[in-house]
Design a protein around this nucleic acid. Structure first.
Lengths: 239, 239
DNA sequence: CTTCTTTACGAACGGCGTTCGTTACGAACA
DNA sequence: TGTTCGTAACGAACGCCGTTCGTAAAGAAG
């Protein structure tokens, strides 16, 4: 690194560091997402991202205002993975449900991104794309714009909220050293179940009697159940 | 402080520092909640709590395992503020709705506690108290235990999620220096509205046409709307 | 009066987000 | 060709953070 410090670079060796891709916002966002997926939300730091790019943390600030903005950019980047069908208002119910499942699937695929999702009011291009789709679907199906906006808002909150909660389990699993979800569930959830079961039945008759019901459903099942509750409430809003 | 270092304390001056309440978990939790309410989630640190108690951060660890546990304790402490009525299964719908509004009111009263709520699986005494109430109400009204457990889970997620989102606005307001919510809404939300309105209508016809609808409802209105969606989906689960 | 256990806490470790002042360099211009 | 200049890159530092460790003080037990 120092041996040829003042020798002018020969023209046929085009750059001193061709291997090191030059910084850009996209590259930083992509790297951030990478770190997030591989090591989790708590491991995502400006320093960690910089390290991954063989540079110092200060260098990132030329392309990204701060950590919060980086998280928003990563979030919108992930929203871009959500596939949207061609809008068909006559099938609004199926399409709404399908969208919710797809969005949930994508968010859970990048588990810890959900931790950034709830903390932001998404205004990026991909968030707009999704918003436009849902708003159009509901309004064209006959819902009032006011109700459509509210449904969009509540549905988004529900999806992000559930993904957020899910990501916390993932984090907990990582922290406990385990890597097999099955093993984690048995140890952690089972522990809670034992605790519930050991409570005084006189004081908590229902909790103690129905421990099994409380821990029975897995994440996907819970999500679908809540989604169908919401859809059940949305139905009567359509003409 | 050093002038009477080795003079034995006279028995009539009972203690050298009677003004300084001795540490205890309760005191630490109460102080933490105080800091949280007064200065927000980001200001809540072990150091800040210790400072408030005129001691060093290390002293807290005798009463609290770590920051996460402190947050859980604060959360459960707040859940204790939720008032529950006498269970009346014949009025399950009203009581369920009333509970949701009360819980939401309490959580929003300690805005940033919601940031701790979502990050935890509540197993404290007050969480159990609430869980027992809801489970009992729904099962006695005729719902299957499995569905009752799922409803409890989803309703809790919705309430916490909404309160979480609300607390972020509060944080943003604090960060922006403003202290009047009205002023904040006009500046921040108005800014977003302007941005939405300025988008290319060809690409985002619905978003641009219905900007008003998107920002019209306030927090409480949105919460109630989503709550009624859920209740609408819960209704058919009852015999 | 001694011993032991519990509580308190100063000091330090390693990490964080962010800022500042300075380099290095490619493009624009003389 | 030589010079200037704007800007991306970055080393160093600031002031935080959660947590641990070793020690000191205080109270209970013997």
């Amino acid at each position: 690194m120092g041996s040829n410090a003042e020798v002018p670079t020969p023209p046929w060796r085009r750059s001193r560091k061709p291997v090191k891709r030059q910084l850009s916002q996209d590259l930083i966002v992509e790297t951030g997402l990478h770190v997030l997926d591989a090591e989790g939300f708590d491991a995502l730091s400006m320093r960690r991202v910089a390290q991954e790019l063989d540079t110092g943390p200060a260098s990132l600030y030329a392309h990204v205002a701060n950590k919060e903005e980086l998280l928003e950019l990563i979030y919108d980047r992930v929203l871009g993975e959500i596939k949207l069908p061609e809008r068909d208002p006559s099938r609004w119910r199926e399409q709404l449900r399908e969208y919710a499942l797809e969005a949930h699937r994508v968010l859970c695929g990048h588990a810890d991104v959900a931790r950034a999702a709830l903390a932001t009011i998404p205004t990026g291009p991909n968030a707009l794309r999704v918003g436009e789709f849902l708003l159009g679907l509901l309004i064209e199906a006959g819902m009032s714009p006011g109700n459509a906006a509210l449904v969009l808002d509540r549905l988004t909150l529900y999806i992000s909220g559930d993904a957020f909660e899910g990501s916390l389990h993932w984090t907990r699993m990582r922290a406990s050293g385990r890597s097999d979800p099955k093993e984690y569930i048995e140890s952690f959830i089972g522990q809670i179940a034992d605790y519930y079961g050991s409570l005084p039945p006189a004081q908590f008759p229902f909790v103690t009697r129905h421990v099994d019901a409380l821990i029975d459903a897995d994440g996907e099942e819970r999500f679908r159940f809540g989604l169908d509750l919401l859809l059940g409430g949305i139905d009567p809003l359509m003409p």
